[in-house]
């Protein structure tokens, strides 16, 4: 069992990571990079869910966010255009 303070620190880092990846994904002009950033956000999110004692949701978020939806977005980008004008 990790101490409360350590858990706070870990959570702080993960949450900051979630926010920064989301911000980067939305500011980025390159759609492919944003899709990958969203995948990173999903992974961090699933870590956060795990820390908040929701392992079910963590598995689902990892599989959906990092797997399926990234792939869907990448497919969509391949069919359209990579750059946001």
């Amino acid at each position: 069992m990790i101490s409360v303070a350590a858990q706070m620190v870990i959570q702080g880092i993960v949450l900051a990571g979630i926010f920064l990846t989301a911000l980067y994904a939305l500011l980025q002009k390159d759609l492919l990079a944003s899709a990958l950033m969203l995948a990173a956000m999903s992974l961090l999110m699933s870590l956060e869910f795990y820390l908040l004692q929701a392992p079910d949701v963590a598995i689902a978020e990892a599989a959906v966010g990092a797997g399926v939806s990234t792939l869907v977005l990448v497919l969509g980008i391949r069919k359209t255009g990579r750059w946001e004008e």
């Binding site: 079910d56 598995i59 689902a60 599989a63 959906v64 797997g67 399926v68």
Partner: peptide
């Protein structure tokens, strides 16, 4: 969850 993993 398992279904999504398999689909992935």
């Amino acid at each position: 969850q398992g279904g999504v993993v398999l689909a992935a």
